Simulated scan of single mutants.
Amino acid sequence: MTSPTITVASYNMRKAIGIDRRRRPERVLEVLREIDADVVALQEADKRFGTRASAVPHALIDSHGLYKPVEFGVSHSRLAQAIPFSETLESKLGLGTKNLGWHGNAILVKREVEVIGFEALDLPTLEPRGAVLAELNVRGQELRVVGMHLDLSGLWRKRQVMRILDHIARRHRPMPTVIMGDTNEWREGSGVLKEFARGYTMADTGFSFHARRPVAALDRIIVERSLTIVACGVHHSVAASKASDHLPVWAKLSA
């Protein structure tokens, strides 16, 4: 009997700003509907300045109906938080105040997926960086998912990867694990990617950047070897070619 598959995807959504330089969060959700993954790791999911709120409003995710965000219970400090009744004031001004993830990293899951654990991780770097971790029950199968967006500097990328791998090994019980995100690594089979050689397999998804003319596989799905990669690829569509400067990558996995 064939094991059921779980579809995962990773998408640097560029704060919902498309290649036309317009912020259109509904395009991001349209792309996610096309992929129809069980679990999605997002990068650049929150605005960088101001209230640092989600680039895709929570109400829009709710009305979309397919996904729910994993709530990590963390928020970025904002100057406005020092002002009494700041959230009430921002609400009256129509400003979003709630972030979707941690340092732009977020995880969306289909509504029937059970979230059994979650954690936000700080990563070593010169600028604020983090990763998010969720432990899930997907149709009776446990799966750990880590979403990350690595630094532009190769030195810091290696330190960040080692922090993630060490954290999983020390703090969590064995569970099939997928690590996904924008690695900012242009070199195939070298650089920071070789740190995953022990215990993990790199899904051969293909080039995902730039959306206009993909020439680099910056976005990666890295799969623990207890899982089988049944199929994988880059999601090309009219919507995906406009919604961000990255194309989403996806993989179907089985135990």
Rank of each mutant, 00 (worst) to 15 (best):
V115N: 04
R22T: 11
G94K: 08
D46Q: 05
S54N: 08
L108E: 01
E90Q: 15
A106K: 06
V56F: 03
L32R: 00
R27H: 04
I17N: 03
A80I: 10
Q81H: 13
R48A: 06
L29M: 02
Q43S: 12
L42K: 02
E90P: 00
F49E: 13
E71W: 05
G73W: 14
P69S: 12
L32I: 01
H76V: 15
I107S: 01
V40Q: 09
A82L: 15
L108P: 00
L121K: 05
V115F: 07
G50P: 10
V28M: 05
V74C: 09
A106E: 04
K15A: 01
D122G: 08
T51C: 02
R22I: 13
A53D: 09
E119R: 14
I83T: 07
L95R: 15
I83D: 05
E112K: 14
G73P: 13
Y67A: 01
R24L: 12
V115W: 03
I19E: 01
I116V: 15
I107Q: 03
E44H: 05
R52Y: 07
P69D: 06
H103N: 14
E44C: 08
V56L: 05
G117F: 09
S77D: 13
L100Y: 12
L108W: 00
I61L: 09
Q81P: 09
K47Y: 13
E112W: 12
E44S: 05
G73V: 10
S86L: 04
S77Q: 12
S54A: 15
G104C: 04
V39Q: 13
I19A: 00
I83W: 10
A80W: 13
F85R: 08
G104H: 02
E114R: 12
V39M: 11
Q43G: 07
F49D: 12
A106T: 05
E30Y: 00
K68N: 00
V40I: 14
F85D: 09
R48F: 03
I35A: 04
F118D: 09
L123P: 00
V113D: 02
R52G: 01
P69Y: 11
V70P: 04
I83A: 08
